[in-house]
Write a protein that binds this DNA or RNA. Sequence first.
DNA 1: ACCAAACCGAGGTATATGCAACAAAAACCG
DNA 2: CGGTTTTTGTTGCATATACCTCGGTTTGGT
Lengths: 271, 271
Amino acid sequence: MSKTEKRVKTLKKGCGRLKKGDRRRQILLELKLRPHVRISELAKRFHVSNETLRRDFDALSRDGLISRAHGGASAPMQGYYPSLDERTNARIEQREQIGVRAASLVQDGETVMIDSGSTTIEMARALAYQGTPCTVITNSIPVAMTLGNDEVQILLCPGEYLAPESAAIGTDTLEFLSRFNVDRCMIGSSGISDEGPSETVRGFAAVKRVMLRRATTRHLLIDSDKFGRKGLAHVAALSELDTIITDASPTGDLLTKVKTAGVEIDVAEPS
Amino acid sequence: MSKTEKRVKTLKKGCGRLKKGDRRRQILLELKLRPHVRISELAKRFHVSNETLRRDFDALSRDGLISRAHGGASAPMQGYYPSLDERTNARIEQREQIGVRAASLVQDGETVMIDSGSTTIEMARALAYQGTPCTVITNSIPVAMTLGNDEVQILLCPGEYLAPESAAIGTDTLEFLSRFNVDRCMIGSSGISDEGPSETVRGFAAVKRVMLRRATTRHLLIDSDKFGRKGLAHVAALSELDTIITDASPTGDLLTKVKTAGVEIDVAEPS
DNA sequence: ACCAAACCGAGGTATATGCAACAAAAACCG
DNA sequence: CGGTTTTTGTTGCATATACCTCGGTTTGGT
């Protein structure tokens, strides 16, 4: 009888029955109101079985329109790096240590440039947790969002928005950064060799270079996995760095080259 | 024995373990980046048991700082939401209609400035769904993230990052916008009266003004609830608009003033 | 009227989560 | 130093959800 009821209702409502696409639209609508909806809740509301809702959630999840969770779904984490997620899972602890160590270097009232990247996001998180009042200039959206609403004033860089990395790059970014002089800069890179840090994306290398040029003290945040790796684009020479903040000291040739260049190695302890 | 094992393990890496208050802050920070976090996920990350995380979630939930869900928690929802409230649903639908209508005006290859605000975010969603190849200049982070990853090239404005609105404002923003000439601009506002649109935040009014100045065709996206309202800061005169995209035509004095100013009224119909 | 495809619902089983009580460790304090 | 409080980990059980398969129903086309 509930079937007949439903049928009558949907017929009354208009163009045909309550189809999959119709429910899907309702689900998305609901997610705009609330960050999270539960399967059983919507099932009761639409008068369909939980299984049906589950299928809808799966379909929407495949299309990337929602983000599934146990018991329901939430709005897609907007702009959150899909490629970056895998990397994030790998070396969380090292990154966190590096981030905490780097954030502890920032003094009250300083101005800091922060690069984009997963390690610098960790650093931003640690800085927000510290609550150090300071000014941050960044081209990374996640960094800005993490530090926002706190005692930190944030200057966002202009530029062409690169969705996979959630950051702005391009000549506008470079020109904007060039207008400032800051106390510190915190950059990451996808590799470091005896020639210095390097990046896989050319646009990012230019941003990092400008940040290094405008900062009094220059820190490189990099985990020990990346020692010896060479990316496509050269960022800077070792001598253009002041400190390398990492989770384990390099060895062999890289170590001697770093020392020769007069770069301090700051090993973040699990403390 | 598993106890002893675990104890040894946590002691070993152990001094880095977070205390209750620290974990809570980390949870809130994480929720700034993602709309939903899972208990098991954070438990692994913090190296604590699921029960501990559950207690933290309960505590934060009691304080109203987060919203609990089965298996996790999400950011606190703004205002309470009777899920079956038809008025709320209707308003959301109106916004979506306005967004779809506005997005349909964008032609292939055009350059568009998009303001910050909930209605313009809806418009960005519709534009992303359409897949119209174009260039977008915006100071709104959600707009940039929504349109990213598609055929749309996005230029992000610089400026001081305003966390509550997730947008950039300030003189840097204005100066950047002034350097461009675009085909269209899409702005929202918190009210419109016979004197024109107005905003509650002064910084935003300036941004909207510059966008209007740099665009050939100027659209105002506003839902009919806001007719007659006056915000703190005046944005522009009615005559500086070309089209008002809304869900219902204004009436009475406002209607005559709008018509006198030569502004077209575009009523978005429910598709 | 028939068939094919898609959609939906029901059942069973495995897994994940929630909850409450207890035990252990750590922190706190005099 | 010892006792007390707080925090955390573990256990067992109830519940909720996920996943799979099957069969029925509707839809759409010929």
